[in-house]
Write a protein that binds this DNA or RNA. Structure first.
Lengths: 212, 212, 212, 212
DNA sequence: TCTTAAGCGAGACGGTACGTCCAGTCTTGGC
DNA sequence: GCCAAGACTGGACGTACCGTCTCGCTTAAGA
């Protein structure tokens, strides 16, 4: 993960004082704390530095901008998502939707996710970093769910669908997009009823696709 | 629409010089132009004022903040969405998805939409204004499409579904969310293939729901 | 005196909010206080702004740099020098030397004078400003002393000596230079004995010149 | 000359790697070069270190601060002043004035001299070092000139004048002060005419003193 | 026609954060 | 123990906007 500003910062035999590993952790933690307290738009690099007990220069030595820092700080939150086998495709979908909704209720996640996506509309490297650090890493959940459903016989084993533009990507956008839109744009709760109706809709679509 | 800072700005019998109506249009147009040129985060009130040939005071007399101004400036773009009768539910869905995707390719729309949504996560009045001025106004498209499909017999006439928590809202979140996620988060093109596969999935889901 | 950064700042009919006159006085006073407390090299614009109860922008709107500000702040000190008629050329010289020495003992004057002269060695506009605001204004003292001595018959009335390169300039450099060098470079006190011996030397030179 | 930070740096029997003598010369030379290029206020320790091909650590191991380093770097320039016997007191004075003026035209000398004197107004050890390394060493020129003039009979042999507060010191302050003030404060050229008139004035004063 | 009250432009104001630069210190590994 | 390299804390820099304010001028409706 080349998430740092400078080229591989910790080559072993490099001369000079090595970068403090503790600083990295402190900075990312401070960033999340600042996101909770202030939100993205009032988060300042100076404040993060102060919270982390670190000089501003140390921040700028490692991250080129607030956006890159925030992406790194929240990426780890998304990695906490998991997909335990709940016994059926339906339960698996409900489970992941609920987990994702719970994540989007965390203030550091919701303010940061939308903000960096907004910034990324004018910043290709940032877009790339978001995809690499956050988005693509969650596709594993869809892939895993599909594989399990195929093993259970809930979905046909044909069409691996993992190829570029495959069904996995479509399902991913539908699930993630619907939850994000419900929670952040429509501003409505992702409650049990909604989850069940969304799951039913999606299962219906998948079933129709399998038959058609 | 109480989109202004001060209460009814042009009450007829009010004393003093009335507000310039031309200024309003110039400011909103200048805001869109600035969004195109600079994106949301580098847009400044001073810059908008200069572009509009207006003093900063005039901006702040009418909008309380950059966010409110931007919401008003882009809301009109979303009102351009239409749903001509394309003859089938499938074609109607494809049509609206394409229109929405085209809108999200306009730089002023994509940078602004995500940014104000991000800000709204910590600002309830802004959230309310986004819902009022942008989001809820587009639900008419879903409603219209459903009505037409019911008239055509493609969907059962039962369940008006317009009630709070009705199917309309779910469909709206799924369509809008999937398109936004595909275009802005995944950063992939909303091309013909994707639109067709998404439409098929959604139709399948709706059909299953109608049967179940 | 165009001692400000921007062109004549207080033209009467100019549009916009006029500059605060009180701010000017507060800033110059704060600058002198900071010079006393911190000396030139540790004086910071931020600190001056804070002391003056003024924003940093207000400083930079009026002075282009720390050096220009300091010149203006100390110039007024030099204007306090006076040359009361002490009855003889000798007494007048002794008087002005003592006054000048007393001025150079004030911490804000001594740290600032040498520092801005040092800076001016690489900054022609600053050099010009120092000459205009400080140096040339004190030549009046030499001129006045000479005129009085001529009136008393202590010096010949011939040779007005005020022309460029005239004797006045030479005398000025000798007096000011000797006192500055004694006080700041040699770091020795300008005490009574030194003043008397310096005055005797200078009077002797002037007398010889008058005769020769 | 205890111009180093640490006590006698090259005690013979000391353990460990001895300090590089070449580094000293390179640093002082780099300092002078930086003074020429940047002036005192923009000279940075990092820059000097880079120019000298040396690490910053090495600088700080030898000099406690930028000011001390600069004093050492320019002190050697002043040692180049000489007083060849030009046959008369008048010619000797003119000679030394011209030499000193030429020195003050060198950019590294003029920017550094005034700057360190300015700093020394708030830093007694620095003041002491300037006196030791620069000022007092030049008094030899006055002393030598006086001795020669006495030998020639141009000045009376009485009054050794070398004692503290003696005439030598006064003459030194008058000569050095007048030239510095003319060149750096008044910002006027120390040209032939000025030198001759200054010399005449000073000779007149010395003659009167000798007679009185 | 003359108030009168608000709108309007311009731009100064007190603030806050920016991203950079340098000071001076500390921590490596190699000599 | 010296040295080069470079990361570290800390603090000032000068700039850019923020949102507010204070001017003098303009514009209409009502007296």
């Amino acid at each position: 993960m080349c998430s740092r500003r400078t080229p591989p910062p910790t080559a072993p035999g490099r001369p000079g004082r090595p970068r403090s590993a503790a600083a990295d952790a402190a900075i990312l933690e401070a960033t999340r704390a600042a996101l909770v307290d202030l939100g993205w738009s009032k988060l300042s690099m100076s404040d993060v530095a102060t919270r982390a007990g670190v000089a501003k220069t140390t921040l700028y030595r490692r991250w080129a901008s607030k956006n890159e820092l925030v992406v790194d700080a929240v990426a780890v939150l998304f990695d906490e998502l998991e997909l335990p086998d709940r016994g059926s495709l339906s339960a698996d979908i409900e489970g992941v939707v609920r987990q994702f909704a719970a994540l989007l209720e965390r203030p550091e996640a919701k303010t940061a996710l939308m903000a960096v996506v907004a910034e990324s509309t004018r910043d290709a490297p940032l877009r790339e970093r978001i995809r690499t650090s956050i988005v693509d890493r969650q596709k594993r959940l869809v892939e895993e769910g599909r594989r399990r459903a195929q093993a259970r016989g809930e979905l046909p084993a044909t069409s691996p669908a993992g190829a570029v533009g495959g069904t996995d990507d479509l399902i991913f956008d539908v699930i993630a997009g619907a939850v994000v839109h419900r929670a952040l744009v429509s501003g409505q709760p992702v409650d049990t009823q909604w989850v069940q109706r969304f799951t039913a809709l999606l299962l219906g679509g998948l079933g129709a696709a399998a038959r058609g």
